[in-house]
Design a protein around this nucleic acid. Structure first.
Length: 410
DNA sequence: AATAGGCACAACCGCAGGCCA
DNA sequence: ATGGCCTGCGGTTGTGCCTAT
């Protein structure tokens, strides 16, 4: 694993980019694609290292970047995804179209993190700051559930991101086959969001990965499996891990069941619970159901996207108290889909399903307000606070939603 | 008006890992 | 199998702007 020197430090400019430099970089990429970033600066006449050029492009100059203030929904999505994924900004960014991981990271560090801190919520764990004791004595079963959800979602997101990348690769490969020159960037860039896609787009043919199998769902399942997630749970004394692989592989439906009576089975999941013998530990159950869920077939705007993606995944989380369904509709649709009329679905899919969990259950509404708005972390009612995951999400969102940005809380 | 402090954001740094010769 | 190249990623720093004093 040799690590390449970033660049020759001598004679290369650092610091803020000038409009002239931006123009040079833009003009070059529009005409030639970026190709090798290392070689780009010399070709483009820039006194910058390739890495600097790449960052400038991916974080600022790319034409498909939405700049400006984050919407409330975007903010909520970031909070929720961060609770699930932690500081995996690139994974979070996959659910915020047109936002870069760097932008999201900065926004988190400068805005959301501070808000949560002021609200008495640990921005790392998304728990009230005085919840540590609860976790250590095994009472925070919901935290364990959430941790497991996070693991599941993390694996899913990885697979999703992989699929999106491969989809883009395929798209660009098709474009290439159709005779597009390297300048296809200029016309297709609006439909290409991630830097990786652009990278692949401009890679020499030999460097491009082979086209993925035509059925995207296969890739998802493969990714799930290759991630070791399912295997790691097999024989784990209670976890049923199964993603249906027979027949139609599309639209996997995963059911996460929490059984109040099941023995502790979450070994290795969620650090604070590894040695937990609490009989109340829920059973987590994944049930693959690949054949029945309603497939959402999306029409591609472009001919190269004729292949349909079955881009719905339904994830049902059920507990003794609540059951809510996550319909991952479109979340691994291609970027082309995002810009061809399905954007809203894609952009809002995960966000909405998350938000949905906070409004579906009327029993939650009675717990809005006072308790969750206790900025100091709850004051002795944390066991209630962690009654279930929904309460947790609800509390975060209510705090965010009910507190205008100019309020003292923020 | 000058200045200090805080804030927001762009950019940089360096590690990790995939790919290829 | 090995080593170099390249990119992705997360953490950190630098800098300009805004606001309060």
């Amino acid at each position: 694993m040799g690590r390449s020197p970033c660049c020759d430090k001598v004679g290369l400019k650092k610091g803020p980019w000038t409009p002239e430099e931006d123009q040079k970089l833009l003009a070059y990429i529009e005409e030639h694609g970026h190709g090798s970033w290392r070689a780009l600066p010399a070709k483009a006449g820039l006194q910058r290292c390739g890495k600097s050029c790449r960052l400038r492009w991916t974080n600022y100059l790319r034409p498909d970047i939405k700049r400006g203030k984050f919407s409330l929904q975007e903010e909520q999505t970031i909070i929720q995804l961060h609770a699930l994924l932690g500081n995996r900004w690139s994974a979070i960014a996959t659910h915020l179209p047109k936002r870069t991981d760097n932008e999201i990271k900065n926004y988190w560090n400068t805005h959301i993190k501070k808000r949560l801190t002021k609200m008495g919520i640990d921005p790392v764990t998304h728990k009230p700051k005085n919840d540590a004791l609860l976790s250590s004595d095994g009472q925070s079963k919901t935290a364990a559930n959430l941790s497991h959800m996070a693991q599941w979602e993390s694996a899913r997101l990885e697979a999703e991101a992989r699929l999106v990348r491969e989809s883009k690769i395929r798209s660009h490969s098709l474009q290439h086959q159709l005779g597009s020159s390297s300048s296809t960037f200029a016309s297709s860039s609006s439909a290409s969001t991630s830097a990786s896609a652009l990278n692949n787009n401009n890679k020499p043919e030999a460097q491009r990965p082979p086209p993925p199998p035509s059925r995207s769902s296969l890739d998802v399942l493969k990714a799930w499996n290759s991630g070791g997630w399912l295997e790691s749970n097999e024989g784990n004394g209670g976890i049923v891990s199964n993603v249906g692989v027979s027949g139609d592989l599309e639209s996997p439906t995963s059911t996460l069941s929490f059984s109040e009576n099941a023995p502790p089975i979450m070994n290795g999941i969620g650090g604070e619970n590894n040695n937990n013998n609490d009989s109340a530990m829920p059973m987590i159950e994944f049930v693959g159901n690949s054949g029945n869920s309603s497939s959402l077939v999306k029409e591609e705007a472009e001919q190269e996207w004729k292949s349909t993606y079955d881009s719905s995944i339904t994830t049902t989380f059920s507990s003794g108290l609540h059951e809510f369904t996550m319909n991952m509709e479109g979340t691994w649709a291609s970027e082309s889909l995002r810009t061809s009329g399905s954007h809203d679905i894609v952009e809002e899919g995960f966000t909405n399903l998350l938000l949905k969990t906070n409004s579906d259950d009327p029993s939650l509404s009675s717990e809005d307000g006072g308790e969750s708005k206790n900025g100091d972390g709850g004051g002795g009612t944390n066991s209630d606070f962690y009654e279930d995951n929904n309460n947790y999400w609800n509390s975060i969102l209510n705090l965010v939603n009910s507190s205008p940005s100019h309020s003292p809380m923020f």
